[in-house]
Design a protein around this nucleic acid. Structure first.
Lengths: 347, 347
DNA sequence: CTGAAAGCGCTTACAG
DNA sequence: CTGAAAGCGCTTACAG
């Protein structure tokens, strides 16, 4: 009987070395594509590895100082088309480069971010793509202290020391609100995201700027803070609709918020867009399928995911790559949830 | 200056051992929760580990024969609500158990499954959850040969040696078609999934059984093979609608196929459900949002994902766990895409 | 209850 | 162009 150690079934570089009567160093060199190996040796090693069905042990490689070829992707959760689309595009790009994806969902780890990040950096990933709010700077501190390669998607690093891939949040919001203004709306409300998030702040700023630029006053009671999730959108929507001077249009800072607002509108027995116009942000996959289809600001999530991945790959090649900021343009998609305000005047 | 070796920044069990003047064996024992450690020693180790911010190096642990605490999830792709929901529920359950999720998307790896599976088993995962078609048995062969723990979701192992979590595909299809028959439909077509998939075969069998049980003949031209993706549904829909004796109802073997069929229906200028009824299968997140909302067979994907994860955890505890088959009930969800057939007779 | 030692599979200077 | 040796950080028998 063969030895029955647990891993004995797998063949290692020792098997290849023995078979060919060369040293493991040589095998390792060939397998890692180093130069200074005699062409004939290289060929024999490669051929034997193939014949024996050799597969590198990732943890050993990684432990010994090599790469694990695993990239960590940190997201709040994944059952949401926004995140799954981003993750999916990252995965595509990673696959092309022969890298694997380790998924870190943070939704249960709030409050213990430090430990979480440390786990990650001690973990088996070569680099990280963060699609999470950078609320606490500790994330980045630890990452930077370890000189750990990472790229942030759709959130800003307050210290400006990170590679970031983002979209034109301010401009997108500005365009959306301008669209409503041009339709004739004057009472335009806004349900924001969490104000701790840079994208929320930018979108709110875009909203305000559009109003101001068109000579429309900003009313505090028309601005309600949400959190980018549907339930808060619903709550905010109810408050807005109960206002004495009900807004004729609501700009929701993201689509899920808009969905919540729409639910509130239906509950109030109102029609979209006859009674009230709704505009979202993101253009997630459900947006074309709401009733009526949602006017929203398209964010090129797929491009963003791909760009972030490519950026990370450059970081891996060149650790001293300077911080880079890539911003993709958003685009207003006009569908059926926005139209002219109702005629009946309420001021 | 400190040593500048790459990993020198991380603290190891040696640091803890030195600090406490005990051996690394002891530290390791404590960290792994083994018994036979003096309570006071245990406490000191734990406290020091905490104080030093110790984080275990997963690859070292795994290499040395311990666990990596990483579970691999193999899916075709993830930008589809079916898969993202399954993955999400797996992730939830994994998080509870303190395990991480490594995502293996196969969409680019077709044709090289063997190598892929070997990579996975040599990789750093403790176990695998397969949400992919088990087209070639080589997957399972390799897994079984390595005694590698795995669970299959929604696909059958022809050899019956695997743990499988599934749903009542046959019954679900039977219910869906019975629903159409009871509405008065006689000409009911079916767009199947790939016939290499067990779920496709079961759903088709359910379709046929329902027709037969209700004394309705099965017409070969009413059955078209699809592949569970939207474009094929669209193509199949066009063929069906072009038939001289156009069906009055179409049972699509999954929702994405149904979406494709609906697109074809619109293109033909027909109305759903006035001219033709459509029923899907899965109840993915878009199903309630189509126009009209899609009648479909709900598959409890979340429960399935959770059950599969729990099953895998038992397998990890007890490697000799016998093959288990868990089947969840499906449920017909009647929405607005199905109604009585049109009055005008075409027979 | 605890320690010394070997080994997991690989990479990487260091010598030739 | 190639080999011997140390080491990555941990676990696990084997001895006490």
């Amino acid at each position: 009987m063969d030895a029955n150690r647990r891993k004995s079934q797998n063949i290692t570089i020792y098997d290849i070395a023995k078979e060919l009567d060369v040293s493991v160093s040589t095998v390792s060199r060939v397998l890692n594509g180093f130069e200074y190996v005699k062409e004939s040796t290289r060929r024999r090693v490669l051929e034997t590895a193939e014949r024996l069905g050799y597969v590198a042990n990732v943890q050993a490689r990684s432990l010994a100082g090599g790469r694990s070829n695993i990239i960590g992707v940190v997201v709040p959760r994944i059952n949401n088309s926004y995140f799954s689309l981003v993750v999916s595009s990252i995965d595509d790009e990673l696959t092309k480069a022969g890298l694997n994806l380790l998924l870190y969902t943070t939704h249960r780890h709030t409050g213990n971010e430090d430990h979480y990040v440390r786990t990650i950096t001690t973990g088996m990933t070569d680099g990280l793509i963060l699609v999470v709010p950078i609320a606490s700077a500790s994330y980045l501190n630890i990452l930077q202290k370890h000189q750990f390669p990472y790229v942030i998607i759709d959130h800003h690093d307050p210290t400006d020391k990170s590679c970031v891939v983002s979209a034109t949040n301010w401009q997108g919001a500005y365009d959306a609100v301008t669209h409503l203004l041009e339709l004739g709306h004057q009472r335009i409300a806004c349900v924001t995201g969490l104000m701790t998030l840079s994208s929320s702040r930018e979108r709110l700023a875009g909203y305000k700027a559009a109003l101001t630029d068109h000579g429309t006053a900003i009313h505090a009671e028309y601005i309600i803070e949400g959190d980018y999730w549907e339930p808060q959108g619903y709550e905010a929507g109810k408050k807005l609709l109960a206002l004495p001077k009900r807004p004729t249009a609501i700009f929701a800072a993201n689509d899920f918020t808009a969905f919540g607002v729409m639910r509130a509108v239906w509950e109030f027995g109102l029609s979209i867009p006859q009674d009230i116009s709704i505009v979202g942000f993101d253009d997630v996959s459900q947006a074309p399928f709401t009733r009526p289809p949602l006017t929203t600001v398209h964010q090129p999530l797929e491009q963003m995911g791909r760009a972030a991945t490519k950026l990370l790959l450059s970081l891996l090649e060149n650790p001293s790559h300077p911080p880079e900021y890539i911003e993709f343009p958003t685009q207003l998609i006009i569908r059926e949830s926005s139209s002219q305000p109702p005629h009946e005047s309420g001021i």
